[in-house]
Amino acid sequence: MNFIGLSTFVSREIGRMFRVWVQTLVTPWISALLYIFVFGEIVGSRIGDFAGVSYIDFVLPGLVMMNIIGSSFAHASSSVYFMKWIRSIDEILVAPLSYLEMILGFVIGGIVRGLVVGIGVYIVALLFTAATIDHLALFLLYSMSIAAVFSLLGMLVGLWAKSFEQLSLLNTFIIMPLTFLGGVFNSIHMLPEVMQKFTLINPFFYFVDGLRFAMIGIRESNVMGGAILIAVLVFGLGTLVWYLFKIGYRIKD
């Protein structure tokens, strides 16, 4: 393992995140602040207790998850796409880095950005509520593994995309709708029966629910089932991305 090469690549990825910190960090924090203020504080204060907790506490894990998903996906997809576009991907292709190390570099970069943004959202929420994290280790494990899933997904899109428009397609048509329909703002029991069935096959529901359990101890699904789903996704997507790097899909001539 080329640890120096990998750590250099990771530091480059993290440096890139901080180079445009307004876009990568401040923008999602402001967006989360508005969500928390409007849905949590203004609307939430009229709802009262929700599944045994205040509405803002119920919504917060979903908001943290949304931001982790969005940030890790955006980081990996834009990094791969831009490196392809300006051909700086050649720098890592000619270097003595294995395909696994290249992938780990992007994924760790995505996880770091996802965590920094997600924890930032949590800190923003402390302005409005005494938000807790009941199971810190589970919170970190869930956050990191979901960030890994969406970093890998972002890499796939970054590899596949040939234009800026294509880069945003998956986020617009899949990730965003499934996140909103995955129980960020509501309990599954509030939904009509048909929608409940749909939610149960929506993987994002398990991501949100797992993090909600880690933060406030409330769950509506089997947390172990969610963990297995995430492990399968990390392995499956990781294998696919590794194979695409190995054959040089859209990165090699």
Partner: peptide, 22 residues
């Protein structure tokens, strides 16, 4: 084929790192 926003010294620094130079 470089990151055009990166500093000259960083471009060289990163490449040295990829090659495993401590």
């Amino acid at each position: 084929n470089v990151d055009i926003f990166a500093k000259a010294k960083d471009i060289v620094w990163y490449m040295a790192g990829y090659y495993g130079i401590p």
